[in-house]
Design a protein around this nucleic acid. Structure first.
Lengths: 303, 303
DNA sequence: ATTATTATTCGGTTTAATCGAATAATTGGA
DNA sequence: TCCAATTATTCGATTAAACCGAATAATAAT
């Protein structure tokens, strides 16, 4: 049978690729430098190629060495996932789970979901990380977070995702605005309105523009806010109008202002979804988590 | 540092999952049953879960065991790929390469490309496998073939691909056909023609229909052939008309018949492409191969 | 030149892997 | 029901591998 490298050797390799220093790499692996050196040597013998040039005192990884280290990294992550499958199967919904969430969902959904989650699964510790979608997906792919709550559509190539529920938009303006007495706001109305939006990078910006079919006409945007709360303050101060997610309105984001909230004639939504790595060991748990959030939302719709 | 299973243990596991028999699995791994038994036991201890139920004399894999074996299989393939990266780097374009090709490309392209390839890389042995696209991609993903020559567009999700050149279509009919004297055939002409096509499963069928914007109207199809050669014979026998790939015409497929070949007014093409697994160790070689085929086609266009 | 740093080599020790024979468990047939 | 055949497992012994620590060699900085 063909010979394969050992995972231990691959760990040595990734440590060396990371540190470019035998001593530090050895420390990372909890072995002595001599052991690590021997391991790398074995690997080079096995592969028949040079992984690191060490003519001088400094270590320099070969281009090929980096490529192999990249694959080795992936394999080690796979091995950890494999271990995770077993532990997740033994005790589902226990231990630590790192959850990413975008800032236009987190503050409005999680305060009501997390208590319920904690009650249902007391041995599960949720760690939250609030970032924008692109950053979350990057961290997700790298294995730094287990799953992420984001708004779709978004490019989730290579990931698994599930839609939990839809989140609509409401038109927000002051009572003295020309549209303030309308029963509903049409696309045509919106097209004539300079909208206040979040700054570039927030998916809500694109989803809001998409909601009123204004994807191309970014030129109509007047000012940019850094958070939904800022957005509300700007509307309340009479600077302009905007579209707010129903989710944020339901969380009383406009409380304490005299902002009017009007429905849109042509219902448009963003889809709130949970995404995770396809090969994640905790797929079953994510399904449970998704169920719980979807149910929670259905409940709060009624109440 | 967290403990990981060894690749050897994972090999034992995959062998056991495959055979469901300790003795045969041991033979596959070239070890004694006792060794394999101990290895599986260690793995179970490490994971903390039962992989195989062996209360009776027969071995029954746990559902979880199968899932873990699936992952183990992928990891071992990754390890082999990693080894392959090194050997491919040492001596590119040598050794064995298994190439898949669809029947509507192979006979027309390869007879002229393979000699050139053999001359350029005398230490490379090409093994061909001629199947339809779906089968090829399935075998590609499973690692049974290294790369495949197919016609795009096709769903190549998760694979890497490169377009080599475009292959147009020609209208084929007998001299006594009403359209035989036209300088070019329009979409409207084609819409009024019942076409002869290949049987279901050949991508050429879809691509030809797509070439004349007839995707939906499969009802217009009269008879089905099992190969392009049959198709030509049917046209020559006066049964009907069809669309033939330029590539096949260039290979003199209609020689010896009095078939008229007319260009299409609205140029439509299929894209000939090479696909491979993204993680394949031979990516660099596939780029070389793709270059060679594309250059070959450009040359033969002129000549 | 000298010193500090760092990868490597070497000998010895500990640990792990593997084998072969014996054993236990189970099934199918006599 | 009991016997024979099959098959996984256990056990003891052997072999191979992993690892350490000290010594060494090579290099860069002072």
């Amino acid at each position: 049978m063909r010979l394969l490298p050992s995972l231990k050797q691959l760990e040595y390799l990734t440590a060396l690729a990371e540190t470019e220093h035998f001593g530090k790499a050895a420390e990372l692996c909890n072995v002595t430098p001599s052991t690590l050196s021997a391991g790398i040597r074995e690997l080079e013998d096995l592969l028949g190629v040079a992984i690191a040039e060490r003519t001088k005192r400094v270590v320099l990884m070969t281009e090929l060495g980096r490529e192999i280290a990249r694959r080795a990294n992936a394999m080690i992550r796979d091995a950890e996932d494999l271990m995770g499958v077993a532990t997740a199967h033994k005790e589902p919904m226990t231990g630590d789970m790192v959850l990413g969430v975008i800032p236009t969902i987190g503050p409005f959904l999680l305060p009501r979901v997390l208590p319920r989650l904690g009650a249902a699964y007391p041995d599960l510790r949720i760690f939250l990380r609030e970032e924008r979608t692109a950053e979350l997906l990057s961290r997700l792919r790298a294995g730094h977070i287990d799953a992420a709550l984001i708004a779709l559509p978004f490019d989730t190539e290579g990931l698994a995702s599930r839609t939990l529920f839809d989140d609509g938009f409401l038109f927000a303006c002051l009572p003295d605005h020309p549209l303030a007495e309308r029963p509903a706001i049409t696309d045509a109305d919106l097209a004539a309105q300079p909208l206040l939006l979040l700054e570039e990078g927030h998916c809500l910006r694109g989803h809001a523009l998409n909601a009123c079919r204004l994807a191309g006409s970014a030129a109509r945007v007047q000012f940019e806010a850094t958070s939904i709360h800022t957005l509300v303050q700007m509307v309340a101060a009479g600077i302009g109008v905007t579209l707010l997610p129903e989710m944020a309105v339901a969380a009383n984001i406009a409380a304490g202002t005299d902002i009017r909230l009007l429905p849109l004639a042509d219902a448009a939504v963003r889809h709130i979804g949970l995404v995770w790595r396809r090969a994640s060991p905790r797929v079953k748990e994510f399904e449970l988590l998704a169920d719980m959030i979807a149910e929670h939302h259905a409940d709060s719709e009624i109440g």
